[in-house]
Design a protein around this nucleic acid. Structure first.
Lengths: 215, 215
DNA sequence: ACACTAAGTTAATAACCACTAACTGAGTTT
DNA sequence: AAACTCAGTTAGTGGTTATTAACTTAGTGT
């Protein structure tokens, strides 16, 4: 009576995973509202309402996708902290982990910060909660390294670094040709590190130069 | 027979501008496909098909919005370069200009990197062209400051800095409370500067730690 | 073999939505 | 003031789409 690994169960699990993966691609390309249930089924080799055998609806599929990735990020971050000897190494490993994630799964990154609002209230709350926990991993690490800085500033810095690292999905999708991912990895890690560790110093800049108006 | 500033012409111009502004807000909140023509009209005080008196369709409205903002960015960047005495000041001013833009018009920033794919082919080509020109402003400035770096790397760095700066729309929308915009401005400028100017150095990191799988 | 489960199918259904048609009335021109 | 323009209105219209219904069929347990 164990959760038997019968043929049907296997097939179902596979289909579900194919559905999630192709959904990530489609949502990344066309956005949540730009993809129909028909499309989602077709991309997984079945057509239309078969999707309802795996998810209660389109929104629920998106929910599974984003809750999954948020949980993965958090778990990955926790694993990083558990396996590093000191705070300095922790931060470096966090950066490396996040860069790797962004370069490896650009689709999911894109869906996560594009279609978050299409989630059901419950799913959105859960995703936000997981994301917050992940951010706090960074903030806590940064607090140990930079006791002088306000927590609000550190949170803003963490978020800015996510933006920096997550920018590559955009860049890579738009230009066919950039530097290879190896170079990208090095550049992003270096920039993230610099942005986080350089002492906060004022830039002697005046205001925002000429303002053009058309919109 | 000049483009007379008659009552009707005025009213039309106003309505058009209101339409564009409220469209920016709505698109930022719900995404292009999540907003109906009815919604767009209603937000501008008219209802439904009146929008067609100002734009040939929903897509054309988005086009006007994004072409406008891309042109503004490019013009602003050009103005910055024209009004700064040396390359060092240029880069500082570019950073300040972009930070100001992101903090002042978060909605449009969000729409621009979320709904670009919903544009008509022609509009998308134009927006991409304007964006490319804006990026090249940055790349050209960076090339003068860092003759040693490859152009592809500089382009990647510019794009990463945009991601860093544009991250605040996200952060500010999500948490009600962060540091004030004054602090945000200073932090972002400082991080952008650090990311661009710190010498590229290797981080002695191993691979990406434990990989969790669920998606 | 036999009853049963469940993943798949195709055919409705109902809502929504971009866009068009026909009309109205205030502002503009001569 | 008569003729005209044009931004607005309220009804369609046709197409798309999420979800449900009814049915089929292959795998599962006895």
């Amino acid at each position: 009576m164990q959760p038997a690994t019968t043929t049907r169960t296997q097939a179902k699990a596979n289909r579900r995973s194919v559905l999630l993966n192709s959904a990530a691609t489609l949502f990344a390309q066309r956005g949540f509202s730009g993809v129909s249930i028909e499309d989602l089924g077709a991309a997984a080799g079945v057509s239309g309402p078969a999707v309802y055998r795996h998810f209660s609806g389109k929104q629920a599929l998106l929910g599974a996708l984003l809750v999954g990735v948020s949980a993965d990020l958090l778990a990955g971050g926790q694993a990083v902290l558990a396996s590093t000897p000191d705070v300095d190494a922790s931060l470096r490993a966090l950066v490396a982990f996040h860069v790797d994630f962004a370069l490896t799964k650009p689709d999911i990154i894109r869906v996560q910060d594009r279609d978050l609002d299409s989630l059901s209230d419950a799913d959105r709350a859960q995703v936000r909660s997981l994301q917050r926990a992940y951010v706090e991993l960074w903030v806590h690490t940064l607090e140990q390294l930079f006791p002088g800085r306000e927590t609000a500033v550190l949170r803003l810095q963490a978020q800015a670094v996510f933006g920096l690292i997550n920018s590559t999905p955009h860049s890579l999708r738009i230009h066919g040709r950039t530097a290879g991912t190896a170079t990208a990895r090095a550049v992003l890690e270096s920039m993230a590190w610099a942005g986080l560790t350089s002492s906060q110093r004022r830039l002697g800049t005046g205001a925002g130069a000429a303002q053009t108006s058309s919109v």
